[in-house]
Amino acid sequence: MPNDTRELPASNNDAVYRFLGGSPLAVAFRLILLSILVGIVLAAIGFDPWNILHSIQLLFRRIWDLGFDAVNWLWRYFLLGAVVVVPVWLLTRLFGAPRGR
């Protein structure tokens, strides 16, 4: 509309909200929650946070050693991950900021 005005440049508080995607406390809470959930999934796979490269190498070695049974093993981990990822995705869609057009 021609009579709409906006303060330029954006205030510091507005810039922080835009950069983070919300209030800093809410963003920190979401990041903490997502980190815990992803940590649970990675622990189920057998990853060690202190030696992540060795854990990844061990994961691929186990997949290789399992042969055709790896398909079943990967399917179980896919389902385990989906239990975490799908609700997180759904929550971010439901409680996320509205997208502009």
Results as ranks from 00 to 15, higher is better:
residue 72 N to I: 12
residue 58 L to W: 00
residue 47 F to L: 15
residue 84 V to M: 13
residue 86 V to P: 08
residue 49 P to N: 02
residue 54 H to W: 04
residue 22 G to R: 04
residue 67 G to Q: 00
residue 82 A to T: 03
residue 30 R to W: 15
residue 86 V to M: 12
residue 75 W to D: 06
residue 90 L to D: 08
residue 37 L to C: 11
residue 82 A to N: 05
residue 19 F to Q: 11
residue 51 N to W: 02
residue 86 V to Y: 04
residue 36 I to F: 15
residue 54 H to E: 12
residue 31 L to M: 15
residue 23 S to R: 15
residue 75 W to A: 13
residue 41 V to T: 01
residue 59 L to Y: 02
residue 92 T to H: 12
residue 46 G to K: 10
residue 39 G to A: 02
residue 89 W to A: 15
residue 36 I to G: 08
residue 73 W to S: 03
residue 33 L to E: 11
residue 34 L to F: 10
residue 68 F to Y: 11
residue 23 S to A: 14
residue 24 P to H: 08
residue 38 V to A: 14
residue 28 A to T: 06
residue 90 L to F: 14
residue 20 L to P: 03
residue 53 L to M: 11
residue 77 Y to F: 15
residue 23 S to P: 08
residue 26 A to E: 13
residue 33 L to A: 13
residue 26 A to G: 14
residue 26 A to K: 09
residue 27 V to M: 11
residue 24 P to V: 07
residue 68 F to D: 12
residue 76 R to V: 06
residue 76 R to M: 11
residue 86 V to K: 03
residue 76 R to T: 04
residue 58 L to K: 00
residue 28 A to C: 07
residue 63 I to E: 02
residue 59 L to D: 01
residue 28 A to V: 08
residue 39 G to C: 02
residue 51 N to H: 14
residue 31 L to K: 14
residue 76 R to D: 11
residue 23 S to I: 07
residue 85 V to H: 01
residue 45 I to D: 06
residue 86 V to F: 13
residue 30 R to E: 12
residue 69 D to W: 07
residue 28 A to L: 15
residue 61 R to N: 07
residue 54 H to C: 01
residue 88 V to Y: 05
residue 58 L to R: 03
residue 44 A to R: 05
residue 62 R to I: 05
residue 91 L to V: 13
residue 68 F to T: 09
residue 23 S to V: 06
residue 70 A to I: 08
residue 91 L to P: 06
residue 57 Q to E: 02
residue 42 L to G: 00
residue 90 L to H: 11
residue 31 L to Y: 09
residue 58 L to I: 00
residue 49 P to W: 00
residue 84 V to G: 08
residue 82 A to L: 14
residue 43 A to T: 05
residue 82 A to Q: 06
residue 29 F to T: 08
residue 81 G to E: 04
residue 51 N to E: 10
residue 51 N to S: 13
residue 68 F to E: 07
residue 78 F to D: 03
residue 27 V to P: 09
residue 79 L to V: 07
residue 54 H to Q: 13
residue 49 P to Q: 01
residue 56 I to F: 05
residue 77 Y to S: 01
residue 53 L to C: 00
residue 80 L to I: 12
residue 79 L to Q: 07
residue 86 V to A: 10
